[in-house]
Design a binder for these strands. Structure first.
Length: 269
DNA sequence: CTCCTATCCTGCGAGC
DNA sequence: TGCTCGCAGGATAGGA
């Protein structure tokens, strides 16, 4: 579900809920078959620890405690809300804090991750180790270098979290449209100029989406319960058959690496 | 190495 | 109206 702007928005929402930096008092689990089982011992090891900060790395939310991090990945349908569990099937766990704050994690498809890692383990965690640079720290010339000799599509390459993090299906489609680059084009055939334009558009579309509170397609919701707004300004994603905003011809859709890809064959070459 | 496919799981909407 | 099928914003293992 969520790409970088949605994760950033959720993280900031949690940051506001945890503004007084309370201590984590307890974690309630409502089902055993989450992707990462957390033994009671591990759970208890973080009880009593104060919240230090909230961070985001790629599409992961990191709740920094005194000696550990709570690691949250929303997968496709994960969301955090303040309050009590309501939904028996989909509310999977609850974090309770010393100031009475109670945060519930909901995830119908259960693709998300919730884990506890000690600070000393953070740098060796396999999930974080394999991640590429944050998009705002990424440049067109780096993309140009990485893409040399690569036959995979440019869209698959920019969605590869080892190359650059945070870009998922929606924003890949949008950035490629804005840069005028066809999503199926072999990555190795992009010019330096293409790469610079594309990375610029990735940054622009991500930061614009953050300002709009993310894109709500179905499940995504901000931590305060608000919907995103960016879905209202999408140029190509989800618009197959509709008129391109630039040339008025029809937006197309086809799968690339198994993901629905929307683009304008006239404006993107 | 590189690339693509299948897979995890459930809900929902399109289309018959 | 009711049912089935295919698809969904992610990530990764495994095979070619």
């Amino acid at each position: 579900m969520p790409e970088l702007p949605e994760v950033e928005t959720v993280k900031e929402g949690l940051n506001r809920f945890l503004d007084s930096r309370p201590a984590l008092t307890e974690i309630d689990f409502y089902r055993k078959d989450l992707r990462t089982p957390l033994p009671v011992r591990k759970r208890r090891s973080v009880y009593g620890q104060k919240v230090i900060s909230l961070k985001r790395r790629a599409k992961y939310i990191l709740i920094e405690l005194e000696s550990h991090y709570l690691l949250s990945h929303l997968g496709m349908t994960g969301s955090w809300r303040q309050g009590q569990p309501i939904d028996n099937n989909h509310d999977h766990l609850r974090l309770k804090f010393s100031d009475g704050t109670s945060l519930v994690y909901r995830d119908p498809r259960r693709f998300g991750i919730f884990d506890i890692i000690s600070k000393t383990q953070l740098s060796t965690d396999k999930r974080l180790q394999s991640l590429g640079p944050e998009p705002f720290e990424f440049t067109g010339s780096e993309l140009f270098k990485i893409s040399r000799g690569r036959k995979t599509s440019i869209k698959s390459l920019v969605m590869d979290q080892r190359v650059v993090v945070g870009v998922g299906n929606i924003y890949a489609c949008e950035a490629l449209f804005m840069a005028g680059v066809s999503p199926g084009k072999a990555a190795g055939r992009l010019t330096q100029r293409h790469c610079v334009a594309l990375v610029e558009e990735i940054k622009k579309v991500l930061s614009s989406a953050i300002r709009q509170g993310g894109t709500t397609i179905s499940d995504y919701i901000q931590a305060e319960g608000d919907l995103g707004y960016f879905q209202n300004v999408l140029k190509v994603y989800g618009r197959s058959g509709q008129a391109c905003t630039k040339c008025k011809k029809s937006i197309k859709v086809k799968p690339i690496s198994g993901r629905s890809t929307y683009w304008c064959p006239i404006c993107q070459k």
